[in-house]
Design a protein around this nucleic acid. Structure first.
Lengths: 334, 334
DNA sequence: CGACTCTACGTAAACGTTTACTGAAAGGGT
DNA sequence: ACCCTTTCAGTAAACGTTTACGTAGAGTCG
């Protein structure tokens, strides 16, 4: 395999010159540049990124930690990250952590050993342990679709509380006043609690009757969780005309279960979801839902981490805006 | 940042000894081992993978090239790959190539520069240009859910023709004799043509009437493609009682369109899909489909590439078995 | 007790780059 | 003609490891 030395020898110059040419520094004539470039061509030489990384302390690689939640929700964000990373010749190592925290620490070690330039934490809370590790080694971090209350780590996310507020308000504006919520895990400080709060807030602000029994939460945010939680909800509150689901998958679970129970959607029951996954336009009926711009969020996170790496500064948090995409699962009533 | 030198100095040994201890070679007493391990702990030393990679010519990193097709179909395979990779401390760089071929070559260059130990090509045909490049630099490759007729590159995939044959035969066994197919891109030598062939073969072998107009193909394999192709198919052949869709997404498109046209599924029309994506159990009705064991395929491909890397030998191809998972979108008739 | 074999460890080269430093030649001003 | 500056280019150190080779001391054996 040809190295920079081979090129230098064959072109009758020093390796320094070759390096300079490759890196577009100055200090050579157009003539030698041509000559070197040509022998590079002849030799089929490609620079060795590992050697470069060793001395430059930059690997042009970032790590992304994602939990093994719905692959659908994650893959778009990762695409966004890759989009901006690849523009600068940076590549992305994705690590799927199980909810199990031990694996996360392992991956952190792995990524540190690989000398990644930065790490993006996705949809996962940043434990102190993780932060200390990263901080100790000066590895830039950004949180994507997550946040940290106490640690000085920048994040990009949508305002879940506000989005849930809007979703609920949307239902109310369509004339609904008997509204329930199928929530995700209440313990989840990122996607669980805030959405519940937003729901409650919208109900209260609009003087819609609200009781705790109108909110039933699942174990997670999955299809099955949604389906099961909905069953409880609807049997306790058969009068409901609308439901806010904390995720699209849950909304699909609701639709599926409702179908089995012969509850027409949106005829008798309206459903609004949360996420705007690709599948939400494939459902019957197509799902009205609040859209998180996953791709854009990924891109923002990518840009943030790149900035941190390049400038060493800590950027501002980025709250991206959600919007409600209206399809056919919510009916206007009255 | 602590290096091996710091450890050596503080522990009063040479760097060689530290290295030997770290790599579990022989040549030191238990006593010195303890001492070194302890100072490693004290210093918070972590080995630098880049430096190691430079000399050992192994980066413990593999690249995975995936086309930007349905993210759903891809993410499981990637998970499989990661599963086996991570077991040996290897990490995975995923590159999303657009169908556009130029980007693929770019990524190949990137991955070569990063000195990945091997590359997995997913759902993409291996052009000669790619192969030559990889071959020139001796980078192991395996094809996942793809194959090459003329190039000596091992692959893992299901037998698409056979699987399509079985899917069609399944329909026939349920009593259907008026069967159409909504196929993907005919030009696609991997997932397009073979599935059509399998369909035809099953029809012929079972003496079910077959005409070219019973097969209408979409541009790709998407929801929309399925929906559009189905519209054409059903208007030309309103007598159909069953359809074989070349992908689950297409099947969902069919179901959705059928719903709009007031065609009951499976009451009046049975549908069988292909892929067994997560969403196929979320549809109404839940989709009967051909399951490709994506996760397992990813794992097999991962194992194959690891083998190639470690032994330098070329493993056998791996044809994994599909199976039909029966849900509720196909009705038995007569 | 000398020769020989192990064992435990150190020395230094190598991996393929980047870059600070140095130097030579050329050009320009007086 | 001399000095100063600029431009082009080479030398060598450094990055943090692994590893081939060398060596000193301890143990074994006749």
């Amino acid at each position: 395999m040809a190295t920079i030395k081979d090129v230098a020898k064959k072109a009758n110059v020093s390796i320094a010159t070759v390096s300079r040419i490759l890196n577009h520094k100055e200090g050579y004539t157009e003539e030698t540049r041509k000559k070197v470039l040509q022998t590079i061509e002849e030799l089929g030489y490609h620079p060795n990124g590992v050697a470069r990384g060793l001395i430059s302390k930059r690997t042009n690689t970032i790590g992304v930690l994602v939990p093994s939640i719905s692959s659908m929700i994650v893959s778009e964000m990762v695409s966004g990250i890759e989009n901006v990373a690849h523009q600068t010749g940076t590549s992305v190592i994705v690590c799927h952590t199980e909810s199990n925290g031990k694996k996360t620490m392992q991956y952190l070690h792995l990524l540190k050993e690989k000398q990644v330039d930065g790490i993006i934490f996705t949809s996962e809370i940043l434990k102190n342990e993780y932060y200390e590790f990263l901080n100790k080694f000066n590895i830039p971090v950004v949180l994507l679709s997550s946040e940290s209350i106490n640690l000085p780590v920048p994040h990009v996310k949508v305002d879940d509380r506000l989005a849930a507020y809007h979703a609920t308000e949307y239902l109310i504006k369509q004339g609904h006043s008997k509204i329930g919520m199928v929530s995700g895990n209440r313990q989840d400080m990122i996607a669980g609690l805030p959405r519940i709060e937003g729901f409650k807030m919208a109900m209260e602000m609009n003087q819609v009757p609200l009781s705790e029994s109108l909110i039933v939460s699942g174990r997670g945010f999955s299809f099955k969780d949604g389906s099961e939680a909905f069953e409880k909800l609807i049997s306790a509150h058969p009068e409901l005309t609308a439901v806010f689901a904390a995720s699209d998958e849950m909304a699909l679970g609701i639709i599926s279960k409702a179908h089995k129970m012969n509850i027409d959607i949106p005829g008798r029951l309206s459903v609004i979801g949360y996420d705007n996954l690709a599948i939400s336009e494939m459902s019957i009926p197509p799902l009205t839902t609040v859209a998180q711009p996953m791709l854009k969020m990924g891109e923002s996170a990518g840009e943030m981490i790149m900035n941190m790496i390049n400038t060493g500064t800590v950027p501002e948090n980025c709250i991206v805006s959600h919007k409600i995409v209206e399809r056919e699962s919510v009916k206007k009533i009255n």
